[in-house]
Design a protein around this nucleic acid. Structure first.
Lengths: 209, 209
DNA sequence: TCCCGCATCTTGACGTTGACAAGATGGCAA
DNA sequence: TTGCCATCTTGTCAACGTCAAGATGCGGGA
């Protein structure tokens, strides 16, 4: 009852309080429970039970249930930002940023699901806002580079188009709306569709008509 | 306490039971409440209160809270099917089907939000399955016509691409993820992006380079 | 016209939940 | 050693979803 789910690879818990790094343990338990049964049925008390702490234990770290979900959303946006940055950094391909987006949605599904349920957390939370800003910067930076100079007026539109495409694909895959043979290889599907919707990888959208 | 929110244009309530057409009244109240504060915070007892019925009133019509949401999802898919069919029928344009999809998502937002939260209702419900099948038939029928003969192997991919695009756009708009100047005219945005991603309205996706 | 069956709704109760207040615990700085 | 305060516990409350059992009253058969 003193050392919870501390990951072995975790270096330092910053502080070992009365019962270990409770905040992290709660977040990990929440992530696992969301992965198993979705964010809708999440219960604070069940999280506390699973971690071995009293039912009001979480209150001090996240004041609300909303507070816990806000922390999860913020962490999700941070991880998404890292994933996209890593994908762009290692490939230089804008298409691969989209693939990384879909990959993140499926691999880190608990975070992704919470992130896009804005009625479940506080979107104006500073950490959320900051992490979201970082994601935007990464994506639009990549788009600017891809389009080249003198295309500033198209950056926003292209960005929204690309975001819509991969976000929709991720959502439909997660929600089980796609035929199984396509849902089996989401990354391949993303490349196929992305390359088809864009003239070629890392080139601009087609001109209208 | 005997005649609830019966719409004046409604022809016949099929049966005027003890307290009117309760089932319809409950669904309408639920829709309104979801529109005001999202589906996450929906409360069966509050719906019952609003309609003026006891807290267990809904039980007989929808056995569960899940049952009520299932009914909403089914109705949503039916309305979506009608909207898409009407759009295609009146314009013959596949792009306009996409525009209708986004328009539906925003105008009938309560339905749309429930429909794509599969952990909140029973997706294997017969009514849901039937209504969903109708939507699929409409969309893929339109795609087949658009692509012309001999393109059967591309129908699925093109369908998923188009669906992803408009679904993502609808979701991002609803969730407030788009910059305000773009979110102000969702239908125009859909036409711009749709026409850009596709070679031209009602033509195939670009071939991959 | 009466009456009875059954769909419809109510009443009451139970276990669970999120939230709050107040108290216990124990590490750490002085 | 002492006292502070972050941390966690205990106790309580209203609200919720669900179930069981009872009341209500419409409509068909006599």
């Amino acid at each position: 009852m003193r050392d919870y789910h501390r990951s072995v690879t975790e270096p330092e818990p910053v502080h070992t309080y009365h019962h270990g790094d409770l905040r992290r343990a709660l977040l990990e338990a929440a992530e696992q429970m969301i992965r198993e049964s979705g964010p809708a049925s999440l219960s604070l008390r069940e999280i506390a039970r699973k971690v071995g702490v009293s039912h009001a234990g979480p209150t001090h770290h996240f004041k609300d249930k909303t507070g816990l979900l806000t922390a999860i959303a913020a962490e999700g946006y941070r991880r998404l930002g890292e994933s996209l940055r890593a994908a762009y950094g290692s490939t230089g391909s804008f298409l691969e940023v989209g693939v990384a987006y879909v990959r993140f949605a499926l691999a880190e599904r608990p975070y992704f699901e919470v992130m896009f349920r804005p009625d479940m957390y506080r979107r104006d939370d500073p950490e959320v806002v900051a992490a979201l800003g970082t994601v935007d910067d990464t994506v639009f930076g990549a788009i600017r580079t891809m389009l080249g100079p003198g295309q500033e007026d198209r950056v926003q539109t292209v960005g929204v188009a690309a975001w819509s495409l991969v976000h929709g694909l991720a959502m439909l895959t997660i929600n089980g709306n796609l035929p199984p043979e396509l849902a089996a290889d989401p990354e391949g599907l993303t490349r196929t569709i992305g390359a088809a919707a864009f003239r070629s990888p890392d080139r601009a959208l087609n001109a209208t008509t």
